[in-house]
Design a protein around this nucleic acid. Structure first.
Length: 489
DNA sequence: AAATCTTTCAACCGCGGACGC
DNA sequence: GGCGTCCGCGGTTGAAAGATT
């Protein structure tokens, strides 16, 4: 159990991936989706045309070939497919080739978020990663182990319990799992410490990041990427370091986590990455104008490469019109951009803080309160195919009802109601999650595959079979997780 | 400039859960 | 219910790059 049979049956290649392998895999998945990972290696080998310009290459990859000598015993083997097990293919795709990955160093707010989430979720990296679009669990795990852990320790915080080391050493808390009731205060302390520390660093640093890249619609001013290597060389605005996420942050993130999680399974959300605008717009390092043309993708090494050859700008602009992109305000400042047709007649629009947002339709927004499923149906029938495609492509947390929630909360909830209250009150959280469950039904809307360009549609049509998500299960799991984490039954 | 140490991160391993037969 | 297969997760490893001596 647990091991791929192919691992035993075949002589499989291990180690770093060569550009050729990446090319095969990427091309295969782009065209067909992965479907069954175990079948990918065989099929991928049939694809022979070059795709080098699509392959992100790292400094390491440049050395791969000279280092890895994999014997191709006969010319037939060249076309026999990738000599990798499906598991390896999956990992490569998820951690490296997936186009919606955000490359570059972690921003300060991302780090803070990871710390917060780790205090709540522990080493559930996949769940943490689900809250950080474009980041993989592996990436976060590495960051934690190599950087954040150390940072916390340096600041006198036990990275396991998220309590002061002195307290842990005194044996007041013998268990290694964070207690729920004071978890949030602990996290707050951590972040305050980090804040203080950063303030000290900044006092010594004159350098200021010149531009703010926080998405419009949310006045997040925390700036500066802070990987281990670059923390000291960058500055951030400490006065804004501690921006408490609003409670809808947790509605959004915890409930959508499992939806986003499906991205690793080549769900339609994967396709978000074919339009890398959103991820790059809030990426601290990989700065790219949202209106850049030709569309460029960042490779692992920060190099950009032109996507136009494979995914024509036409095809992309058919689906995404940068001029109509907008960001919804979120607690942590990054959010998928919602893009709607410029034709506003079919949908209402509203303005928050000078930023304009669109609602797909009045029908949709009204139907939410009655029934999720009917909402879904209505949305599907009433909204344009374009919208459907967008909603389905992993932009679920930007769904109309979500926006409504945002607006509603922004209007009706005083800022004093903090996210911590949600954590401290699982019932409140549960209610929010339940509410979200209905809303999440919007995310199950299927697109019209024939409107999508070739590669995408093939991929989509293949993977749409994997929908819908079991939202009730997801919700239940999340509630369970959260309530368990906070010590409530 | 060379040697050594440290950090980073891609990839592997083993396990458990889900699913189908 | 048992078994096999597949997927996904978290822990771990080790090579490469960077920093330090």
């Amino acid at each position: 159990m647990g091991r791929h049979s192919c691992c035993y049956k075949q002589k499989l290649r291990k180690g770093l991936w060569s550009p050729e392998e990446d090319e095969k895999l990427l091309r295969h998945i782009t065209k067909y989706g992965h479907g069954c990972w175990s079948s990918v290696p065989k099929q991928a080998g049939r694809l022979t045309s070059p795709l080098r310009f699509l392959i992100p290459q790292t400094k390491r990859l440049c050395n791969v070939q000279k280092k890895n000598q994999f014997n191709i015993s006969s010319p037939c083997d060249v076309f026999a497919g990738l000599q990798r097990c499906g598991k390896s293919c999956r990992l490569r795709w998820i951690n490296y080739l997936r186009p919606d990955l955000k490359r570059g160093t972690f921003s300060q707010e991302e780090e803070n978020l990871i710390i917060e989430l780790h205090a709540v979720l522990g080493n559930r990296w996949s769940q943490i990663a689900a809250q950080l679009p474009g980041r993989t669990d592996n990436e976060i795990k590495n960051l934690w182990n190599s950087c954040l852990k150390k940072k916390l320790r340096q600041r006198g915080i036990d990275p396991i319990t998220h309590k002061p080391l002195s307290e842990v050493e005194n044996g007041e808390e013998k268990d290694t799992t964070p207690k729920s009731r004071d978890k949030m205060s602990v996290v707050s302390n951590e972040l305050n410490l980090l804040k203080t520390e950063n303030s000290k660093q900044e006092a010594a640093l004159v350098e200021q990041r010149p531009e703010s890249i926080a998405p419009q619609g949310y006045p997040l001013e925390v700036q500066g990427s802070s990987s281990c290597k670059t923390t000291n060389s960058r500055s951030s605005n400490n006065s804004n370091l501690m921006i408490p996420p609003s409670k809808n942050f947790f509605q959004d993130r915890f409930v959508t986590s499992n939806q986003e999680k499906s991205a690793t399974n080549c769900q339609p959300s994967d396709l978000v990455g074919h339009f890398p605008l959103q991820q790059l717009n809030y990426a601290s390092n990989a700065r790219l104008s949202i209106n850049s043309n030709p569309i460029q993708w960042f490779t692992q090494g920060g190099r950009t490469f032109d996507m136009n050859s494979e995914f024509t700008s036409n095809a992309i602009s058919t689906i995404l019109s940068p001029s109509t992109s907008s960001f919804l305000p979120t607690s942590m400042g990054y959010k998928h951009p919602l893009t709607f047709p410029s034709d506003d007649t079919s949908m209402g629009s509203f303005t928050i803080n000078g930023s304009r947002y669109w609602e797909p339709s009045a029908t949709t927004s009204n139907s939410n309160s009655s029934s999720g499923s009917s909402s879904s149906a209505e949305l599907q029938s009433n909204s344009s195919l374009l919208e459907n495609s967008l909603f389905s492509w992993g932009l679920g947390d930007c769904s109309t009802s979500d926006k409504e929630t945002h607006i509603h909360l922004m209007e009706s909830q005083p800022e004093e109601i903090k996210w911590a209250e949600y954590f401290n009150n699982p019932l409140l959280m549960a209610a929010a999650l339940q509410n979200q469950t209905q809303q999440s039904l919007y995310n199950e809307i299927k697109p019209e595959p024939n409107l999508i360009n070739d590669s995408s549609s093939a991929m989509w049509s293949h993977n749409k079979q994997q929908l819908p998500l079991q939202t009730s299960d997801i919700c239940g799991k999340d509630i369970h997780t959260l309530t368990a984490a906070f010590g409530h039954p």
